[in-house]
Design a protein around this nucleic acid. Structure first.
Lengths: 230, 230
DNA sequence: ACTGAGTTCGAACGAACGTTCGAATTAACT
DNA sequence: AGTTAATTCGAACGTTCGTTCGAACTCAGT
């Protein structure tokens, strides 16, 4: 008899370095993950029952447990895969681009493109952060921290190159807020596509941080804002 | 015998126009709401059980139902009170201020001050939007829409006065994103207070929308960004 | 046709869920 | 002190929860 954990471990062990074969097991698992993502998106992690997931994926309740050992691990697999993919794509896109402003724009575009192409996954990632406990939560948090650090790096480059002065932490978290909040309002039938959205949000954010106080003196209260661009 | 719904209705009927007396009932109810807010904040609406709420508020499970008729109505009361208060304070603060930029800054400050003074309430409002069904959800959504429209109005004033050109919708929703995302990261032991945060976020946002393209010609792609402030 | 591993399922488990009810207790007023 | 209304609670309701188990099915290799 094959226990679920055995089967899962075998499928992980099976693929040789960097060349994972798409086994029947892996394929069916990712189908289930996809359906589960939709259900979690619609009803929330706590609000979705295993019976909901069973119905959505067309598999019996007990059958699901052949593919993962708990509901929590299922959410973990979804979040980890989503976050890893986004980070990996970002790294690939940043390669070879040197201009700091362009690199920030790539960051925004990469995030928004993935967001709008996989809205359910990204809502589950954004909205269910904190739903995972202990080990599972820590592993996703580690990826999040890496992603955060990359963005901090990009903004620090920009600051250095242009001699700007602003709180990187606040800027990064404001940018994340602008982007991640999208899942609460974006309507593909009304709102623009990722490219235009990335341009508009990138404009607001970059003009915001770039037209600020230059380094050199301590900034007390902000100086009166004058309209630039002339 | 007094059924909960009767008691609740009486307490609503009791207060004369504009002068609600703080009855024992109302006082105990708001204590329960306060404790429930903390629990919803920590475990989420679906994740929190009535028994959790019972434990937190020091009242028996059955006793809670004397004050509200369902868990869903409890969340509704929390969200409605929080949102109404924020809108009401905003209106009072906007009164008598004419300068469009100042009015936007007041909007940001009002939001962030309330956010940091009532983090649990605001997390429940932000994170559990969409948890309410049908009638309850619609009533909170109506307040949200009013709040949204106010912000749209403020930005349209600003656009008109300065002859700016940007998508009000994207700007408003980006601003909401920046502000509401705070509940995911703000740490009172590390991060600045509301006033400074409002200045920093206000700077990023206002410089972002104000140093953009001036009205008069159609904007195609964004022009190259140059650093202002010299 | 037989084998054995891989895959699926019906049925059930105990626990926890939101809610109800009638009795008991407390507070307010005569 | 006695009466009434407001408040609280223990105990239970029926339902749904996440998870388990052993039997059954599928399918490739012989």
């Amino acid at each position: 008899m094959a226990s679920p954990s055995t089967a899962a471990r075998v499928s992980v062990r099976r693929h040789r370095a960097g060349r994972p074969p798409v086994t029947r097991f892996d394929q069916r698992l990712s189908e289930i993950l996809s359906h589960a993502t939709d259900v979690f998106c619609k009803k929330g992690y706590e609000g979705a029952s295993m019976r909901d997931l069973s119905r959505a994926s067309g598999m019996s309740l007990a059958g699901l447990y052949y593919y993962f050992e708990s509901k929590e691990r299922l959410l973990f697999l979804i979040q980890k895969h989503t976050f890893s993919t986004i980070v990996q794509r970002l790294k690939a896109r940043l390669e070879g681009v040197d201009d700091p402003e362009q690199r920030v724009r790539i960051f925004v575009l990469n995030h928004l493109e993935y967001f709008l192409a996989n809205p359910a996954s990204m809502k589950v990632l954004s909205h269910e952060a904190g739903a995972l406990k202990n080990g599972f939560g820590a592993e996703v948090a580690a990826i999040k921290r890496e992603y955060y650090r990359i963005c901090v790096g990009l903004l620090d480059e920009l600051k250095r190159e242009r001699g700007l002065q602003f709180s990187t932490r606040i800027a990064v978290l404001s940018l994340f807020g602008m982007m991640n909040w999208i899942y609460t309002w974006h309507n593909p039938r009304v709102d623009a596509d990722a490219e235009q959205l990335a341009r508009e949000m990138g404009d607001i954010f970059l003009r915001g941080v770039m037209s600020g106080v230059r380094a050199g003196r301590k900034a007390g209260s902000s100086p009166p804002l004058r309209t630039g661009s002339e």
